[in-house]
Simulated assay, not measured.
Amino acid sequence: MTDSEPGSLQGLLGIHEALIRNPNNAARGDALHPGRLDPPSGWQPSMEPIVGYQAVDPGTLELGGHDSFHDIPDSELTRAVVQVVDREGPVHFRVLADRLLEAADVGRLGSRIRERIESHLDALAEAGTLERDDPLVGRWQHFLVPAYRDWSEAPEKTRDLDHVHDSELMLCLFRAVLEEKGIDTDTAMNNGLYRIGFTRLTDNARERLKTPLEGLLDRGMLMETGGAIALGPEAFLRGSGGSSS
C-alpha cells in the first residue's frame, strides 16, 4: 500500500485536513444536540472524584512593591481578584481579602480597602465576568456545578464552614446519600461534612446544612421516604437543574 492509496496514513491525514478546512457546521455536537453547550439552568451535582482544596499562593498575585494598597493599579488588582476567584471560587470575601492583603504585604482590612475590593467585585459582576452571592463570589460554574472539594487541605484560616457556599454543601449531602442510600438526615449531614474535611456535626453545622438540604428536596434531587433520605427523581436527569436554580 502506498501513501496515496485509500486507507493509508497519508490518506487519513488528507481527510482530517479537509474536515478542518471545510467543517460541516451541521455535524458539530452543539448542532446535533441543541443546547448541549449551554450553561445548566440550575444546580447540578458533579460526579468527579473529590479533590483537595487549592489555595492561591499570594506571592503569585504580584501585588507587592507599592507604598500602599491604594497605589495598586486597577488593572493589577482586577487581575489578582480574578486569579483568586478562578482558583478558589466560590470564595468568601474574607478569604479573597486575605489573599490580596497578604500579596500586597498589608496587615489590616480597613474600610477604604474593603470599599475598593467591593467596587472591583461590583464592576466584574456588572461585566458578567464574575457572579456574587454575598458574601461569596465566583464564576457561574462555581455556583451551578461546584467542585467536590476536601477542605481539610485548605489553609487553617480558610477552613471554616461559613466559607463554604450552599452549592458545595448541597453537593456533599447529595454525594453522601448517593454513596450510602437510605440514611437518616443526621447521618447524611455527618457523612457529607466528614467527606469534605469537617469532622464534627455540631449544632451550628446542623443548622447550617438545613438550607442546602431543603434545596435538594425542593429540586427533587433528594426525597424523604420512611424516615430516610434517598435519591429523588431529578437525581437521574442531567441538564434540567431541577425545578429551580
Rank of each mutant, 00 (worst) to 15 (best):
A55K: 00
P73Q: 04
R206L: 15
V81G: 04
A104E: 01
G226F: 05
S8Y: 06
V177W: 02
G14A: 08
E156K: 00
I113V: 15
A154W: 01
G182Q: 08
V177C: 03
A55R: 00
Q44C: 09
I72S: 09
L63I: 01
S244D: 12
L216K: 01
P23L: 08
V84F: 02
F93K: 05
M189T: 06
D218F: 00
V82E: 15
T211I: 13
V164W: 11
E207K: 07
F236W: 13
D186T: 12
L101C: 11
S152H: 13
E17I: 00
G242Y: 08
E118H: 15
R238V: 15
D160P: 01
E131V: 15
G226W: 04
V56D: 02
P155L: 04
H92K: 08
W151S: 09
P40Q: 01
E5L: 07
A127M: 02
G29L: 15
A97Q: 11
I50Q: 10
P49L: 06
R112N: 09
L61G: 12
V91C: 10
M1V: 12
P73Y: 02
T225G: 09
A125M: 05
G110S: 12
S8N: 09
P58Q: 03
A18Y: 08
S243Q: 10
G182F: 07
P23S: 04
V145N: 10
Y148N: 11
D30I: 03
A103I: 12
P146S: 03
P49R: 04
Q10P: 00
A104Y: 04
G239T: 07
L130G: 05
L77M: 13
H92Y: 07
G215C: 09
V56I: 13
D122A: 06
H33T: 14
E131M: 14
L209N: 10
E62A: 11
A55G: 07
D86S: 02
R94D: 15
L100I: 12
G11Q: 06
H165S: 15
L237F: 07
T129H: 00
H165Q: 14
L213K: 06
P135F: 04
F93G: 13
L144S: 12
S119G: 02
G64D: 10
L19N: 01
L217I: 02
P135R: 02
P155A: 10
A31T: 10
G107R: 01
I15T: 12
L169I: 14
